[in-house]
Every structure is written in structure tokens, then in C-alpha cells.
Design a protein around this nucleic acid. Structure first.
Length: 157
DNA sequence: GCCAACGTTGGC
DNA sequence: GCCAACGTTGGC
């Protein structure tokens, strides 16, 4: 079992939004970066742990726990000319973009970006690497454990 | 709003 | 295949 961090802008989809949805599930559509896509297509399995991260907002940080609930399928928005995620080079016969489905497990106290940076065990975390912009990044088991520790100790900043 | 960092595009 | 220009991300 693997672990991941997935960024979402809460103004688009917040952890609260997902918790209110049927089955607490959300299709992670709209990813248009090959590396993030490849993680979803090749590596993510049902049951993998997910840190739900709020980005581009007043308080960026980990806001919830989730899990992968379905393997990657073609992203329908790539075929829709009316969608902001439309990709004219994609066809249903040859899709370019795929997404998994994610199921929210629970909201957590916000673990701020500052708190993550201040945690010695997380110094090598991919999210924190200089210049990182990837919206989906792998998380090691040790990092996952350290973050669960932050959540459970309420030292999220 | 700024801007560093990075990914993609497209001319050559 | 190179690489400059451009667009996007995302914290501040």
C-alpha cells in the first residue's frame, strides 16, 4: 500500500465538500500534468492512503485524510469543448488524461505548510522540495506516520 | 499582485 | 533535438 498527497483548491473542492458528497467520493478530474497523471494511471491502487491538501488559499495545508477508491479512468472533461479542461488533442479512442476516484475518510485539524516544514521527519518530503508544483506527490510510510502524529497530537500550527 | 520555478509549445 | 518564449502554479 502506498501513500499520496493530493492538492485541491478549497474554493474548487474542499475536504468538507467531499465529505458532503454521496459516498464521500470525488472524481479527481482536471489533472493536466503528465507526472501527476502517471502516478494516477500507473501507481495508485484502491486503498492507498491520501493526504487531502488545500492549496492556493489563505491557510494552505493538510485538511483531511482520504483513500483511493477507484483505479484511474479516462477524464471525460478532456473531450468537452465547454470544459476548462478540454484538450483538443485527446479523443475517446485515444484519451490523454486519466483520473482516480478518491473517498474522504475524515477531516483533520489543519496541518499547515509551516508546521510541515518545521517537522524534522518531513525535511525530504516531496511537497516541500524547492520549486515543487506537482499536484500529486508520493508520501513515504515514515512521512505518513509523522503526519498522523502531527494530526493526533494537535500540533498542526 | 508579485514572482520564482517549472512544464509545455513551437520555430528552427 | 535545442531552447526561448510563454503559461501556470502557488506561497507570500
Amino acid at each position: 500500500m502506498a501513500y499520496w498527497l493530493m492538492k485541491s483548491e478549497p474554493s474548487e473542492v474542499s475536504i468538507d465538500d467531499v465529505l458532503r458528497r454521496p459516498g464521500r467520493r470525488v472524481d479527481w478530474f482536471g489533472v493536466r500534468n503528465y507526472q501527476a497523471r502517471n502516478y494516477m494511471m500507473r501507481d495508485m491502487k484502491v486503498g492507498d492512503g491520501v493526504l487531502f491538501y488545500h492549496s492556493s488559499c489563505p491557510q494552505p495545508g493538510i485538511a483531511g485524510l482520504a483513500e483511493v477508491s477507484r483505479l484511474a479512468v479516462p477524464d471525460k472533461t478532456q473531450f468537452d469543448p465547454a470544459s476548462p479542461y478540454y484538450d483538443p488533442k485527446a479523443t475517446p479512442e485515444k484519451p490523454r488524461w486519466y483520473h482516480v476516484e478518491v473517498r474522504a475518510v475524515r477531516k483533520t485539524p489543519l496541518i499547515s505548510l509551516g508546521a510541515l516544514r518545521a517537522t524534522p521527519a518531513l525535511q525530504e518530503m516531496r511537497l516541500l522540495a524547492r520549486g515543487n508544483r506537482l499536484s500529486i506527490t508520493p508520501v513515504t510510510p515514515a512521512e505518513w506516520d509523522a503526519i498522523l502524529g502531527l494530526i493526533n497530537s494537535g500540533s498542526g500550527g
